[in-house]
Design a binder for these strands. Sequence first.
DNA 1: CGAGGGATTGAGATTCATCAATCTATGTGG
DNA 2: CCACATAGATTGATGAATCTCAATCCCTCG
Lengths: 256, 256
Amino acid sequence: MPGYTPELIEISKNQTRCSECPIRHQTLFQGVKKEDLNLVQSYRTGQYRLKARQEIFLEAQNSQYLFSIYHGWCAIYKSLGNGKKQIIKIALPGDLIGFQSNIEAPLNYSAISLTDMVLCAFPRNEFTGLLNRNAFVLKRLMELNAREMNLCQNHLMAIGKNIAIEKISLFCAELFLRFHNIYQLPLTNRIFFPLTQVEIGDATGLTCVHVNRTLKTLSDMNLMDISARTLTVPDIDKLCKLGQFDAKSIHTYTLY
Amino acid sequence: MPGYTPELIEISKNQTRCSECPIRHQTLFQGVKKEDLNLVQSYRTGQYRLKARQEIFLEAQNSQYLFSIYHGWCAIYKSLGNGKKQIIKIALPGDLIGFQSNIEAPLNYSAISLTDMVLCAFPRNEFTGLLNRNAFVLKRLMELNAREMNLCQNHLMAIGKNIAIEKISLFCAELFLRFHNIYQLPLTNRIFFPLTQVEIGDATGLTCVHVNRTLKTLSDMNLMDISARTLTVPDIDKLCKLGQFDAKSIHTYTLY
DNA sequence: CGAGGGATTGAGATTCATCAATCTATGTGG
DNA sequence: CCACATAGATTGATGAATCTCAATCCCTCG
């Protein structure tokens, strides 16, 4: 089986070299010594551009690559049969996507871009080779997995809550904090936010109609507001409190 | 900080030696060569007994140990402030519990035994030493992490569904299949099942009252029945269908 | 035998999904 | 530049699903 190939467009010139990657410290390759970055780069197939709302890979299919997100956002999801989706996670720059227990097996989730993206591609069948050749990468992969678990657990807490306003508060508060963490920004009260209300529903297990009403309530309460692809949070502590989200747990996402 | 110490009772004699562990192939130490099992054992503090419904460790506290489950079941959960819990995962024999991104940091979840248990304890502060000294353990840890992710994602799908009967079907079907997988049993139609209805509710985001009513419906439909700490599933395929659970995904939990 | 945790049942209130219509912003082709 | 198509956002009405509160029952254990 040749594997599914998304509509990736290889960047023809001026690809970022791993040794000059500005976000290296938050990727799988954090900690790799300068002189070993050429090794990393030798495993990289290249950098690819992708438009918003395109499939990156599909559940149950094979994929040739693992991707490290260089730019943009995407959603990892599973399909539910009745046409619905469960969004597992929103992946941001630095995240590794497509890694799973049995690396050669068909994927057990799908990914779709939420913005235009740039992805660094690493061939699956050579990935364990890379792990074996550089202990830092292996160690860091373990850290990324553990971070994933933490995110997944928080997400579980969000959709396990029994009322919609708490689900959405927690979901958005976490993204808000992750965003600041990843982009290393001083705390502002607004972030870029490309998700539609349907997607917020797919992530939290609610219908888009109810998401809409709940967002209106949150906006009326002056706790958060989404408009024009921007999430505004006047007071993140209040939002965390409503979602019963421990903001400190976000610090464990970026390690050491 | 000395760290939280649960009421563990060290087994005084006839502790199982790692080299003779009957469930080694499904633990962190699958794949470790015979001659290296003494190394593993040298890192093990000992085997401990624990009664049902006891705390193993608590969120936000430090724990001296990581545990590999030798016998029994436990629940991993987060507390929600209002006295409620979100159960993240049911851990079964062979599972490693207490591992997280920053291994020395306070834990970000709690664990409570659901049955009497026997745990193998490994000191946290020496754990990375063990990983560095045996590549099989490191590789296997990665596999276990990936398996955890898979479980967590399935759990997300369960509680993301919009009706209770599907949530509970998926949750129980997964446990049913995991149980058979772990104990390597031929497919029977009943398994031991120690969870209370409150705990099923904590796992699926429902109240115990509604769990009760939904279980009655499922029983009336002859799809599954819980009584006397036994889960009976006349036709697992039907149950999976109702929960839209892909039974094949269970095979990815045990690797290679 | 009594105590207590878990299971069960009922009634009423709340939250949420569904269906359907409208509105708005954006982009596309002529 | 306009007409149109389309995706997303919004609103209303209705019924279903679920929660809450409360009472009762049942089983186990000391």
